[in-house]
């Protein structure tokens, strides 16, 4: 498959080519990520959306090589001309934290409970930047202040349990940003926080990204999170990218039935009171020996073709949108209704 051609004038910073990740289990190989192509452009943000089990977290951990030992990986992740997946660990370690870093879902568990906040922040700086302890501490304190943490000096001497959830997530964002990386991967950074804090953290991430000209990959199951905050969007289902393109275009004209169904299931402020939320019937697929399009069992447009053959992600159209579907939404209206039908 061809890696997406970046729009002119924008250099691809991180390129995923045919990345697959699978886990050997007694029941067979579970394909968590299946032949994924993605491009992260410098200074832009990419939203990666999918429901639980769609493989988005595994994808992020594949990029960072944080998978458990029973995981198998193929494909390439190219950063600055080097394949991150085949780089010797020693060299890859120099990039992690310094060039590419990650914010995790749950700040309750992603900070070490028995290590002072200050040391958790300065750890990576001392490792990557070759600066003195004092200098690292000064920088960390500035960073905390920038991230809106009151009394950063006192906080640094404290332990994570003395901080609220939102504060902790700010601390782990600060830790991720400590060495001014070029790429930030945020894996559901707000899922564990309450709604009012979610907004603050997302706005903060957006602001920091813009200020630092960082590329960001925002992974979430919540379309509302990526709506106004990402430039591009990729929708994952069953370990594959089923649709990708500029966020605005995807929200306006979703072509893949799954994207359309996801959008339809968002609650709307203007909706009638007590209106039922749209849902997608069925469950996410188990991805042992996938055959055909894995959305088939839940898709109202599915045909026998969908069961047997796997649709490939098409070439981007003029707006940059790509989708993997035999019966994309626009085309489906012209197809006679009930062609094939549901299972």
């Amino acid at each position: 498959m061809d890696a997406g051609i970046p729009p002119p004038g924008m250099s691809p910073l991180l390129q995923l080519r045919g990345v697959s990740t699978w886990f050997e289990t007694p029941a067979g190989a579970v394909r968590a990520v299946d032949d994924v192509d993605l491009t992260l452009v410098a200074g832009r943000s990419l939203g990666l959306v999918g429901e639980s089990g769609s493989g988005k977290s595994v994808l992020s951990r594949t990029i960072m090589r944080l998978l458990p030992p029973n995981a198998k990986v193929s494909g390439e992740v190219i950063f600055e001309g080097r394949n991150l997946l085949s780089l010797p660990r020693r060299e890859a370690r120099r990039l992690w934290g310094a060039e590419i870093s990650m914010v995790f879902q749950d700040p309750m568990t992603s900070l070490n409970p028995v290590v002072r906040v200050g040391r958790q922040l300065t750890e990576s700086m001392r490792l990557h930047l070759d600066i003195t302890r004092r200098e690292a501490q000064r920088q960390a304190q500035d960073l905390l202040a920038q991230l809106g943490i009151p009394e950063p000096g006192r906080r640094m001497r404290g332990y994570p349990h003395e901080l609220s959830g939102g504060m902790r997530q700010r601390v782990s964002i600060a830790a991720a940003l400590a060495c001014s990386p070029q790429i930030l991967i945020a894996d559901e950074p707000t899922t564990a926080l309450d709604v009012t804090i979610q907004r603050q953290i997302l706005d903060l991430l957006g602001r920091l990204r813009a200020d630092r000209g960082m590329a960001m990959m925002l992974i979430t199951h919540d379309l509302g999170v990526v709506a106004g905050r990402t430039d591009d969007l990729a929708v994952m289902y069953g370990g594959r990218i089923v649709e990708s393109g500029p966020t605005k275009v995807l929200f306006r004209t979703p072509r893949h039935p799954y994207t359309a169904a996801l959008l339809a299931s968002l609650p709307r402020i203007g909706a009638r009171k007590h209106a039922r939320l749209e849902t997608i019937p069925g469950l996410p697929p188990t991805v042992i020996d996938p055959r055909g399009c894995c959305f088939t069992p839940r898709c109202q447009y599915a045909t026998t073709e969908c069961q047997q053959e796997e649709p490939m992600l098409g070439e981007p159209d003029e707006s940059g949108q790509r989708f993997a579907c035999f019966h994309p939404i626009d085309a489906v209206t012209s197809v006679t209704a009930g062609a094939g039908g549901e299972q």
């Binding site: 951990r61 960072m64 944080l66 370690r93 120099r94 990039l95 992690w96 934290g97 310094a98 870093s101 990650m102 995790f104 992603s110 900070l111 070490n112 750890e123 990576s124 490792l127 990557h128 782990s172 830790a175 991720a176």
Partner: peptide
Amino acid sequence: IAARSMGA
């Protein structure tokens, strides 16, 4: 895992 992602 977070520490590993920071290059530890």
